[in-house]
Design a protein around this nucleic acid. Structure first.
Length: 278
DNA sequence: GTCCAGGTTTAGC
DNA sequence: GCTAAACATGGA
């Protein structure tokens, strides 16, 4: 187990885990255990420092985008000329945009459609418990996120059984596609608009899920996922009148370019966790 | 009981 | 091309 320590001003455990990018993290020992694919780490922010403890320190250094300087991104959000965005950036400046495993992001956000975060977490937890491989972290057993080959072995009925509801049929369909020529590594070579078009070909993947996969799995910060929360922000805090989600996304990517994805996370986090206490 | 949640698919124009 | 209903589930 190796421990690495980072300045917490632009890397906070709570901010990073609380903005709906990932669904596998659990409070533990004053911090959190975080799972990604078949790996695990302990993440804790204590005052001025954030510590990451893992047997895969390099993997998680990349995962948390730890090398990047976020100060300029936060500054540009504050100076972008919108009150809500400015407040959101100041409040969520500890957010990192994760560089997650592509398959895990893809399947996870297929689950997310028309669903809520606590329920998404539960479904993914059961998915891993049923189909993941046993691993140990800090002496305790956990389960990896299952690979497409494993997911393809089960039928829709199985996925209905762990709570996927009407999305159950999408799981074997996506897994089959990945096993039969749909190459995520090839897709990674495409520019963002073409990458999105490619992802949307998958069953259960529409524009919003494709944006999330591009942002969290392919590190495309020129993606701006628009869900019900972002619609609300657009309407209430930007005075927008468009209703088409694609056009709302274009409005934000047009305005913010490569910073759009970061700004989206600041605002999503702020709207859900701070402004709206529920 | 109704409404909502990090929407997408399908049918029908 | 666009629009509207249908889609499981659980919590408020």
């Amino acid at each position: 187990m190796e421990k690495r320590v980072y300045d917490s001003e632009y890397f906070s455990a709570e901010d990073t885990l609380g903005c709906g990018q990932l669904f596998r993290f659990y409070p533990s020992g004053g911090g959190f255990i975080v799972f990604s694919a078949d790996k695990a780490c302990f993440l804790k922010t204590n005052g001025a420092v954030t510590e990451v403890c893992s047997d895969d320190a390099d993997y998680f250094e990349n995962y948390f985008d730890a090398d990047k300087d976020y100060s300029a991104i936060v500054s540009s959000a504050k100076d972008a000329g919108n009150r809500f965005l400015s407040a959101a950036a100041e409040c969520g400046k500890g957010i990192r945009i994760l560089r997650q495993n592509r398959e895990e992001v893809l399947f996870s956000f297929v689950v997310s459609q028309n669903n809520n975060i606590p329920r998404i977490k539960g479904i993914i937890e059961r998915l891993c418990a049923e189909l993941g491989e046993e691993r140990t972290f800090d002496g305790k057993i956990y389960h990896s996120f299952p690979k497409a080959a494993r997911i393809a072995q089960k039928q829709a009925d199985f996925y209905r059984g762990i709570g996927l509801g009407y999305r159950a049929e999408y799981f074997p369909a996506v897994a089959d596609a990945l096993l039969n020529g749909f190459d995520l590594d090839e897709a990674a070579k495409l520019p963002t608009p073409e990458l999105k078009k490619e992802l949307i070909k998958l069953k259960g993947v529409g524009p919003k899920v494709a944006d999330c996969v591009a942002l969290f799995g392919f590190n495309r910060s020129d993606s701006f996922p628009v869900d019900t929360w972002m619609e609300k922000i657009y309407r209430e805090d930007f005075g927008g009148t468009l209703t088409d989600r694609n056009k709302i996304a274009e409005y934000f990517t047009g305005a913010y370019g490569e910073a759009a994805g970061f700004f989206q996370q600041y605002m999503f986090h702020y709207k859900r966790n701070v402004e709206n206490v529920r």
